[in-house]
Each structure stands twice: as structure tokens, then as C-alpha cells.
């Protein structure tokens, strides 16, 4: 059987990284930025944290290809939803009706 767990040490280190990233992203919300800037920075750090949780806490890093496929398809459909929707709403002022 292939090894499918992540060591407790790696798990604790990941938790420490997650806490540091959380404090950083909350701290950045006190800086003056445009509204889009706050959202972009926050979502970038959020995506990084979500990736860490999926890879280490959810053992994706040690998972077979079929698990990556299920996780990847979830993200792929989410991308279609977000990108196609926002490509409409964000460009309405570019080509007035």
C-alpha cells in the first residue's frame, strides 16, 4: 500500500504557515488600497491558504491521480462559472449596447 499520510510535523508546520498568512492578510486590510486591491490581495493569500489545506491537511500531495482529477474538476467548473460571468459584467462598459 502506498504511503498516504502526511507526517504530524509537516501538519503542524503547515498550520503555523496558515496562521502567519492569516495574520498577514488581516493586517493588510488596515493599509490604504483601492477596493479591488483589497479583494485581489486577500483572495491571492486565501487561494494560497486553501492550497496548503488541500495539499497537506487533505493529503492531496500524497493522493493518486484520480483524486487530483476530482479536485481539479471542481476548480475547473468553478473557473468556468467565475470567468464567464465576470467576463460579461466586467466588460459591459467597454462595448456599450
Amino acid at each position: 500500500m502506498t504511503e498516504r499520510t502526511v507526517s504530524p510535523v509537516a501538519t503542524v508546520l503547515t498550520f503555523a504557515a496558515l496562521v502567519v498568512l492569516s495574520l498577514t492578510t488581516v493586517g493588510l486590510s488596515f493599509l490604504r488600497m483601492g477596493p479591488a486591491g483589497h479583494l485581489a490581495v486577500g483572495l491571492s493569500i486565501g487561494a494560497l491558504k486553501a492550497g496548503l489545506v488541500a495539499l497537506v491537511f487533505m493529503h492531496l500531495v500524497r493522493s493518486p491521480g484520480r483524486t487530483w482529477l476530482a479536485a481539479g474538476l471542481g476548480l475547473a467548473w468553478l473557473s468556468i462559472l467565475v470567468v464567464l460571468t465576470l467576463s460579461d459584467y466586467l466588460t459591459r462598459h467597454v462595448l456599450p449596447s
Binding site: 492569516s22 492578510t25 488581516v26 493588510l28 486590510s29 488596515f30 490604504r32 488600497m33 477596493p35 483589497h38 479583494l39 490581495v41 486577500g42 483572495l43 493569500i45 486565501g46 487561494a47 491558504k49 486553501a50 489545506v53 488541500a54 491537511f57 487533505m58
Partner: peptide, 23 residues
Amino acid sequence: WHFVDVVWIILLPVLYLSGHHEA
């Protein structure tokens, strides 16, 4: 459980951090 964590990780920037806060 970890998925519910991930949802919160995304909700934090979408709701709380998408505006400017004061100390």
C-alpha cells in the same frame, strides 16, 4: 471538515477583507 475550513478561508477575504479597516 477541511473543506469547511477552506470555505471560511475564502469567505474571510471576500467579505471581511474586501474593505478598508481602521485600528
